[in-house]
Computed example of a mutant assay.
Amino acid sequence: MRRALRSIVLFALASLMLVTTASWSSAAPSEPPPPGGAENGTRLMEGPAFYPRTIRLAHAGADDGAIIASVVTFADGLGHGAIFRSDDDGRSFQRIGTVTDPATADGLCCATLFELPQQVGELPAGTLLWSASVGQQAPDRRMTLPVWASTDQGRTWSKVSTIATQPNTGGLWEPEFAVARDGSLVVYVSDESQQPTHSQTLVQATSPDGVHWSELENIVAARDPDLRPGMPLVRQLPNTTYLMSYEICGPGQECSQRTRRSLDGVHWGPETWLGVRVRTADGAHFRHAPTISWYDDGTRNGRLLAVGQMLYGADGTVQPGNGRTIFTSDLLPELPWGTGPAPLAIAEPWNNFCPNYSSSLLAMPERDELLELASGYDDVGECTTYFAVGDLPD
């Protein structure tokens, strides 16, 4: 399904759910869950909640260790970034803030959350940044990527810049941030403005201060015009390299997860190279909306975790662990990955904007635990977000 269509359906469904009356409780639905529903865990908030993101504060002084989460939600004719905090290692969350951009009256999708590890321009270390895809519903749309900042750990927010405005009606999806080796702020995003030469490309822009941004430039642009690299996410590894995870949709690719490396967070190799597939030794792999996480487990390389919407086998069939499996890598991500149980099980997710779509993993190695936030349908068909804590895989 094309990303633009998914976002339109998402917005329409969320708007519809706002005018219905839904029963809500803090716990996941009782057995059996609805198709695409959570089999365990706790509901994050009442109402629709999509595209969860989670960070653990590490540059906030006395607030270090607190967990901050964000989701996309809708109310009063606008899209919002709902901001939550946990002070008990993911056992509970309280809503502490909201990002509300007036432009989201024309649509909101795919928000990200990032803590600055160092000062960038006038933005101090510990500043939280939020961005999202805005404007997909506008007539003759020109989608934008706003940047909002918080210097009080997510309680209040102010707009600091707009990264880019599309020159045509093509989509601009799924922004994610990193800080490059030279100290500049980088955003990575999926771009549909180069059609028909490229159905979609992965692009980036850089900024010395979070206010002034370079033009978007390609990172991955496949030779096949029908291929759609998208959903980038970058993690800096302890060996001073950067690792990007993304999907490639289109003929022969099936939205499978790929990775590639950079020495500086900006230069990623030939743009026509599709990258390395993420898979286990027996060929199991994720399809659709993959994410990646890294944590320090005391070893030289640390440990990588990955999750995707659906789990497939080498033969192209959905596997029994679909919706309840994560991948682990203790060596190089280019080598086969291991598997482990996901803290949060989503019942039989399928290719749809809601169940297990772009889930978020946050390791707590000092507790040997893993927090997961994932979206799923409740028992009245509303898409919302759940969270659960489980053991880190062996």
Rank of each mutant, 00 (worst) to 15 (best):
V211K: 13
T162Y: 08
L145Q: 14
T151M: 06
Y312P: 00
V189D: 02
E348F: 08
G283Y: 03
L202Y: 01
V71F: 03
G36H: 00
A284H: 12
I67T: 04
D224G: 07
M231A: 12
A14Y: 01
T165G: 12
C249A: 14
A22G: 15
D209L: 08
H288P: 00
A49F: 04
G338I: 08
A314P: 00
W268K: 11
T42I: 01
A388F: 09
S131W: 03
G230C: 07
P238W: 03
T328R: 05
W350E: 03
W173N: 04
A69Y: 02
F177T: 04
W24E: 13
G126K: 05
A345V: 13
P48G: 11
G79I: 10
P34M: 11
Q204T: 12
A4I: 10
A27F: 09
G269P: 14
L123N: 09
P238A: 08
G390Q: 02
Q319G: 03
R181K: 15
P355G: 04
T98I: 15
A103M: 11
Q166W: 05
A132T: 06
E334V: 14
A388T: 01
T280F: 11
E39R: 15
M231H: 03
Q137R: 13
F327Y: 15
F74Q: 09
L305D: 02
L335M: 12
G250F: 03
I219F: 00
L237T: 10
L108Y: 10
R43Y: 06
A22Y: 14
G77F: 13
W148I: 13
Q253W: 08
S193T: 15
A82K: 01
I219C: 00
Y386N: 10
P270M: 12
A284V: 06
D391N: 12
E46Y: 12
S15R: 15
I8A: 11
Y242K: 07
L233S: 11
L123E: 03
T104K: 04
S86K: 06
G390H: 02
T162K: 08
L362E: 01
